[in-house]
């Protein structure tokens, strides 16, 4: 049984109908973790926003996205809004700016409960505190009563994670959730993400430009290039036997620790020369 089935998803932008995502297809089973990697402009974030139904008005979406058997393409926003934060949720790249600076963090998490579970007041607060605790915030009471500017980047990203997970969604989409964090915090948040996804038995689409990061969380990977999927498969196979020259370049650049000192570092272009420089 598949949780998410994407068929020939195409996203065009504006009057000139620039193609950002070009008829991609993939499946995701329950509890499965799928990484999408690619450079900026490869269409990975647009794919994520299309799944969430959060693309700007100028976007035209065609193809099919089925979540738990429900077709999402062409569904009115009011219907998709009911699924967002409940059946599927999203963690964004910028923890520093993704929280409302004028509202206490606990209230922002509680809102998600109120919105979908209709729970508020004392019971909601208890659940918020517990969720914050589960995402690794040991002083969750204090964090809940803090404004975003009083928290560190790692703490804010955990709060966003708590918002995304509090309604036990079936699918969590993570768009470069650790890119803005420094490396030590990044490793902690990734481990945590791995734990809570397992605990909540949620499936995950994990977007990153970093193959090393994806391999820590995901079992399978899609490689996107210029809006198309150029390669797909289990992470292990991609590392050992990459087929597409672009993937070979990605693998080589993610293993710069194996380059002998003094030698020139590999670039993607060594493996996958472009016709014109971008």
């Amino acid at each position: 049984m598949t949780l998410l089935a994407v068929r020939d998803l195409t996203v065009r932008f504006g009057r000139r109908r620039l193609v950002a995502v070009d008829s991609i297809s993939f499946d995701l089973g329950p509890r499965q973790r799928l990484g999408i990697i690619g450079e900026s402009g490869s269409g990975k974030t647009v794919t994520a926003l299309a799944l969430m139904g959060l693309l700007p008005e100028t976007a035209q979406v065609s193809g099919s996205i089925q979540l738990a058997g429900r077709e999402l393409v062409g569904l009115p926003d009011s219907a998709i809004a009911r699924l967002r934060g409940d059946l599927m949720s999203m963690v964004f790249q910028e923890p520093m700016t993704a929280l409302d600076p004028t509202m206490r963090v606990g209230r922002q998490v509680a809102e998600v409960l109120l919105l979908h579970a209709g729970r508020s007041g004392g019971p909601a607060r208890a659940q918020v505190i517990e969720m914050l605790h589960r995402v690794g915030l040991s002083d969750s009471e204090r964090v809940a009563d803090s404004y975003p500017h009083q928290l560190s980047g790692g703490q804010r990203q955990r709060c966003l994670l708590a918002m995304a997970l509090i309604n036990s969604p079936d699918l969590v989409i993570c768009d470069e959730p650790t890119t803005a964090l420094d490396v030590t915090v990044q490793a902690k948040v990734l481990r945590l993400l791995d734990e809570v996804l397992t605990a909540e038995s949620a499936a995950c689409v994990f977007i990153s430009h970093d193959l090393a990061v994806v391999s820590q969380v995901c079992s399978d990977v899609l490689v996107m290039l210029d809006g198309r999927i150029v390669e797909a498969g289990p992470v292990a196979r991609l590392f050992t036997a990459p087929e597409h020259p672009y993937t070979r370049g990605l693998v080589a650049t993610s293993r710069i620790d194996e380059v002998p000192p003094g030698a020139r570092l590999p670039t993607v272009e060594d493996f996958f020369p472009r016709e014109q420089a971008r």
Binding site: L54, L99, D100, V112, H116
Partner: peptide, 12 residues
């Protein structure tokens, strides 16, 4: 970004 977050958790 916080508006996008609000939309992503289900606000119209």
């Amino acid at each position: 970004d916080y508006y996008r977050t609000a939309r992503a958790v289900g606000w119209r």
